[in-house]
Design a protein around this nucleic acid. Structure first.
Lengths: 336, 336
DNA sequence: GTGAAAGCGCTAACAT
DNA sequence: ATGTTAGCGCTTTCAC
């Protein structure tokens, strides 16, 4: 592994000039820059991040904290973060927080304090006051995605508005008997998202002058099978039947589609279903949904964090804007 | 951020002793060790990985190279890698290789050469000779998962045997008209897995004395909708119809189940379906499958890499064994 | 078992 | 624009 001295010797300059030429910091003549580049190239030299970060305080590495790796939404966000950061020459080191509080305190108390990262992106994790403080104490730029945390710069989608949009889409199609599958109270301990989606649902109904019917709500756990079971409840029991379902996630919505089919309902003729997320399987099931572009959320988070890293007192990074979303009408919703 | 000197002062020892006490290398009296631990704790001191790795050459960080982040199989493997490595105090930095050859050469030519990692785990990426060489030239322990590469220590599941097991399960249930959904030749440029599964299918048929029927094969792209389309082809066209399907992945198998239902076939009464993987949705669809425990694969890879890191010339790490798999009979296969 | 001191390979003042 | 040099915060001989 060639070192900076060898490059300097081969290029006929000092190590300082090599450092400047390769990092783009400070003034270097075009000629010297070119010789350094060539020398580095021919020696296969790459700046050692260990040495460079010790000397400069910069690691070119961003820590990403996620609660799940094997749920589609989080993978998609991570994918977006990764590609955007890579494009800028940054590495990403991954911290998978589980529910296990030992793991959590290890991550916040040790792993993140190793000075391995220049900044942190926290993806949809509800942090308690302690954890938030520990993050802040790192003294690094932090960007959170989702789950608004007043102490952290957060990129957040307006979940109330999303849910309202979905609900009003249904109302616009003439539906009035609309049921909601969403917020399981237990799940909501970690994320406020389900609650907000439920609020949006209620706002949507209100805007259409439709009274809230407590029977038209069923909690589920944000999995396909949870959605399936919830839909079976809603559709199978005696009493009034909804003509449309607003489901708080695409995965649950897919479960609901399957449940409806099993019970002999045709979607969308007998039952309209709308979800939220923009899940990759939505296309296959022709699911109408409110897309929240998870990949784009990751990319935006990456850019926000890079902006913070590049910010100066003279030119501070601007606060992140609200995340975009879009109603994607496909085949699971239709006029009553 | 407290530094080692402060800890040393507070504990009344030299920095050398602090280093030894905290790293567990070298001899330290129990008393000194305890004082150091207390001092570090009270100052909130964590060893700086920048300084430590520059001085020692060890980073406590493993690079993980994956081709996809948003496919369930890879997320599951990554999840396993992450939890196992974390347990041992290791960080993981993630390199998401895309098909884009610029990204690939950046990762192998630059990112991985920054001396940020002690070892590399490559998850199911088919590497060309150049890339393999670049990995080897890093001079680091490398463990690959899947896609056997003779130059790399590889943890690999016997795909031929898996496929044969699935096929023979069908034969054991009395099926003889068995179709296969699998290897799309184009997809196979990157992974030999589909080909091996097809070979296993053929071996299974042969062991049951069943001649290969070229009509009973349909290529697909390992997605749900790919499986759906392929199954529609197989079941919908004139001519002989299979009574069972061996599908080379669970995601495609789920597509096949849906296709069968849409065509009015009852699963498993009219059609048996078996997949491969152990996908999280398998439970919901009651899919019979050959589970290959992706999470466990990740954990094993992590352990293998740690073993290599701990290995000495006197006690080299043993070569990794074949990965386990298991037939999980659920509801989509039945006697003819 | 413990301490002194010489690096590890860079970067960033400071000089020129 | 470029070189000299003093660290960055640890680990690891080496000596005791």
């Amino acid at each position: 592994m060639a070192s900076i001295d060898e490059v300097a010797r081969l290029a006929g300059v000092s190590t300082a000039t090599v450092s400047r030429a390769l990092s783009g910091r400070g003034q270097v003549s075009e000629a010297a820059r070119e010789r350094v580049r060539k020398a580095a190239q021919s020696l296969g030299y790459v700046v050692s991040s260990r040495a460079s970060s010790l000397a400069s305080g910069r690691t070119r590495n961003v820590g990403v904290v996620v609660p799940f790796l094997d749920r589609w939404f989080f993978s998609a966000v991570l994918s977006g973060v990764s590609s955007a950061l890579m494009r800028h020459g940054y590495d990403i080191t991954l911290y998978n927080i589980t529910a296990d509080s030992d793991v959590r305190s290890e991550v916040f108390g040790t792993f993140l304090r190793r000075q391995r990262v220049d900044a942190v992106i926290a993806v949809s994790i509800e942090l308690d006051a302690d954890e938030t403080q520990q993050l802040l104490d790192l003294g690094l730029p932090v960007i959170a995605i989702g789950g608004p945390n007043p102490k952290l710069d957060t990129l957040t989608v307006d979940d109330v508005a999303l849910a309202q949009l979905a609900t009003e889409h249904l109302i616009g199609l003439g539906h009035r008997d609309i049921a909601h599958i969403g917020a399981n109270p237990e799940f909501d301990l970690d994320f406020h998202i389900p609650t907000n989606r439920r609020l949006g649902f209620e706002k949507g109904l209100a805007s259409g002058g439709i009274p809230l019917n407590p029977v038209f709500f069923e909690p589920a756990d944000f999995t396909v099978s949870g959605g399936y079971r919830a839909a079976k409840q809603l559709l199978g029991r005696p009493g009034p039947r909804p003509t449309a379902l607003f489901v708080a996630s695409d995965e649950m919505a897919i479960g609901a589609i399957l449940a409806a089919r099993d019970l002999g309902f045709r979607v969308p003729q007998d039952l309209s279903i709308v979800g939220i997320d923009g899940h990759e399987l939505g296309e296959f099931f022709q699911l109408t949904t409110v897309d929240q572009f998870p990949l784009g959320q990751g990319e935006r988070a990456a850019e926000a964090v890079l902006a913070k890293l590049a910010a100066t007192d003279a030119a501070p990074a601007r606060t992140p804007a609200a995340l975009p979303y879009e109603l994607n009408v496909r085949g699971t919703t239709a006029r009553l």
